[in-house]
Design a protein around this nucleic acid. Structure first.
Lengths: 347, 347
DNA sequence: TTGTAGGCGTTATCAC
DNA sequence: GTGATAACGCCTACAA
């Protein structure tokens, strides 16, 4: 067992340097304004260096009443989307001296994770991919919170513009001349998915098209879900000529279903995803998608959190909305039986 | 700013219950053996419940001289392999009441992360994908360490049997009748890659084949790396009929290069990866690969770490080696100009 | 069975 | 300039 073994304390340094312990602390942390004689300072610094003294951040946390640690709650980060969000968050946090406590919803649910985090005196928490509205209000209201990809009137949030992404999808496909469209997405409380769907549907409606319920198919937000959903779509009497999927994982499953069914992309069917995960460039034809700034979301979420922690929670929670970008690749193309009316790319 | 705001302390509960603070502590932590009158216990529990008392784990950590937190250091977990390792690790840790401090090598390097972790009085650390031999010994020797995927005489480790994986790859391809083989892998200090290569090369040698240096091509362990490497291989005068890649990311890049060059898999070329990441099933033909138990690695690493922390570090560091499994899919097939001599699947 | 004293390693507020 | 002294919230003795 190697726990608090050989760690040197400030008291130890103080003893060796022949000064009091608080003096050591003074010199090693509250640096610039420390009014301490040069020779004392030099001596203490030298000894601290020699014995390899490092302040115990837990002890610091106890008195400062803050831990310089944040929690990040995600729903399974083997979805590359969250892996990137997480990565962006970790980077900024690490640069700022904050630790990241990783919480994947699974063994523990979000509420349990929140409790554990708060017991550890977390300074703030980032929640991605879990609808904050499904969490008991009490679990959050003494916490600094930033939501990822879900606008909220109660908390700060940073997200891609999901509704616009949906609209861009519609615009892209309509621009390619498609008129018989379909949508695959999860039946979920996660706002990003709902908004993508809404943006898509409304843009179609604005163009005078409706989306019959037979061409809105529900699927788990995974490859398997997309695969099954696309099979259903392909079995339809009136098969759509273009399909927008709520995320790339679904779209890749759909892509695979097309391959298996011998449906050629994009000549027989146009397929459009959302997120722009790297996998999309592996399949052939490469997946067209609406790119969301994944790492940037994580990075900004942490910056926003830090800002709240320093400056106090503002009255009206700030909402950062980042623009999606159209990434047209091989899986979308002109409708077979219609000349493209206009260029489909946007943003 | 909402930091140590309204948190109730044990002292507060004690006051309300009319007992001393240690009594509260006694009842709420060292549960079963606490010899305390039923009525006192009931009263304290009731009050604690009412005011929502939760022990401050930082304070506990300070006196216990252990934090019930572990660090996990990974090199970019947007490689799905590490995402899964991480996920397995988080699950076990969370179930055991441990926090996971996430460290991605990037903004901070491994040594800086280690220092930060140790300042936070981490109880142990899991290191994946970074060669422990490249770290200064001093940074590790007062720590509980478990390595992932790299055997070590100094530290405990859990890993897939990389050398065997390489041998299985050779056996599979040889069994399909291939005689002109190639390897793509990174020039790295990461043991898993070296061992996969070694296992592969030695198995070939044992079969009387050699691997000329022209057919060993170095590539970054990424899709882009694999793509570039395969291009080089395809440009060779004597093009190999089968290629083993050090991991699936490389193989997927190679897969893409083949697609772009119009090289048909598996009829013109067999392609074999290693790891078995989900992406491999998205491409067509699906990627054959040697499966490594990714989440299991993470889970076992944490269990091993917990064991070390409870039971003390054993004299000889335990090494767990998990068997890889052959996952034959569509990207490997019989050599064009040779009848398969025997079935290629193994283990 | 329960309360009191002391300490975990730091920082903050004072006197000197 | 520097050193006591008192927190921070909890736990481990030991005494009552």
């Amino acid at each position: 067992m190697r726990f608090g073994k050989g760690r040197v304390t400030a008291a130890e340094v103080a003893k060796r340097a022949g000064v009091s312990q608080p003096t050591v602390s003074l010199i090693l942390t509250r640096n610039p304004n420390a009014r301490v004689s040069p020779e004392t300072r030099a001596r203490v610094l030298k000894i601290a260096e020699e014995v390899g003294y490092r302040p115990n951040r837990l002890a610091q946390a106890l008195v400062a009443r803050r831990s310089f640690a944040i929690g990040v709650i995600v729903p399974g980060f083997n979805n590359p989307f969250y892996a990137h969000v997480l990565s962006g968050a970790e980077k900024v946090a690490a640069e700022s001296g904050y630790a990241v406590l990783l919480c994947e919803v699974g063994a523990l649910d979000a509420v349990q994770h929140l409790r554990a985090l708060r017991d550890r005196q977390i300074d703030g928490v980032i929640i991605a991919g879990i609808a904050a509205s499904t969490l008991p209000a009490a679990e959050l209201d003494d916490l600094n919170v930033v939501l990822v990809n879900q606008p909220s009137t109660r908390f700060a949030s940073v997200g891609g513009d999901s509704e616009k992404a949906g609209a861009m999808a519609a615009s892209h496909l309509l621009g390619l001349g498609h008129r018989c469209l379909a949508f695959i997405g999860p039946a979920t409380s996660i706002p990003a998915f709902r908004l993508r769907e809404r943006g898509f549907v409304q843009a179609l409606r604005a163009a005078g098209l409706s989306l019959p319920s037979a061409r809105v198919v529900r699927a788990e937000a995974s490859i398997a879900g997309g695969l099954a959903a696309m099979r259903r779509l392909l079995a339809l009497r009136e098969r759509p000529t273009a399909v927008f999927c709520a995320n790339d994982l679904i779209a890749l499953g759909a892509h695979k279903a097309c391959g298996a069914a011998g449906v050629a992309l994009p000549s027989e069917l146009s397929l459009l995803g959302c997120d722009d995960i790297e996998m999309g460039t592996l399949v052939s034809p490469e997946l067209s998608t609406i790119g969301m700034p994944q790492r940037e979301l994580g990075a900004r979420a942490v910056r926003q959190l830090l800002r709240q922690m320093e400056g106090g929670t503002p009255e009206t929670p700030p909402t950062q909305v980042l623009p999606p970008r159209m990434v047209a690749r091989g899986s979308t193309g002109a409708a077979a039986d219609a000349a493209p009316s206009r260029e489909g790319s946007a943003s």
